[in-house]
């Protein structure tokens, strides 16, 4: 066996909990559901990730962050594999992640599951003041996963993480 197993899968998953989504730096890739698995074999360590959106430009940065972190701890060789099935969904986001997101100023996805995009944008609370009286400015924001809203009470604009 060429790889000396210093760490087991769970220990590596724990280490990777440090890696955050660069667009929402308070949430780890584990909490958001992107980190799917770590496979340890004779040829090395394979980290399995699933992208939130197919064109998510953060994937490259996240893959590099993972390799750098693990290699710094003497874990190598590391490969990062992208899988598309099962398709990522906001349902995998933990409640802790949603709370952190809210505190960070992004309204978390409201529905537990969403097959229709037409009813989604009706009941979003403002992450700043909690008011329910909000309005959608645009279904699309600075990143593919977010929509733009404004609060009619505190007048602050905010982002909403869309159900997906």
């Amino acid at each position: 066996m060429s790889i000396i197993q210093k760490y087991n899968k769970e220990a590596i998953m724990d280490m990777l909990s440090e890696i955050v989504d660069p667009e929402i730096p308070v949430i780890s890739i584990r909490e958001i559901g992107m980190l799917r698995d770590v496979v340890i074999s004779e040829s090395g360590y394979e980290v399995i990730l699933t992208p939130t959106y197919t064109g998510c430009p953060a994937m490259g940065i996240i893959s590099e962050d993972i390799k750098t972190l693990l290699e710094k701890k003497g874990i190598s060789p590391v490969t990062v594999k992208l899988v598309y099935a099962p398709a990522w969904t906001t349902d995998w986001m933990s409640d802790t992640a949603k709370e952190k997101m809210q505190r960070y100023g992004i309204a978390p996805p409201v529905h537990s599951s969403c097959n229709t995009i037409f009813t989604e944008f009706t009941e979003i609370s403002c992450p700043h003041c909690g008011a329910k009286d909000t309005a959608m400015i645009s279904k699309f924001g600075a990143t593919a996963c977010k929509a733009l809203f404004k609060c009619n009470v505190c007048k602050e604009p905010f982002e909403y993480f869309k159900c997906h």
């Binding site: 992208p51 959106y53 197919t54 064109g55 998510c56 645009s138 699309f140 924001g141 600075a142 593919a144």
Partner: peptide, 13 residues
């Protein structure tokens, strides 16, 4: 923003 979001989705695909 919307159109460039779509462009990115399609590029990813």
């Amino acid at each position: 923003l919307a159109l460039t979001n779509f462009a990115l989705d399609m590029l990813g695909r």
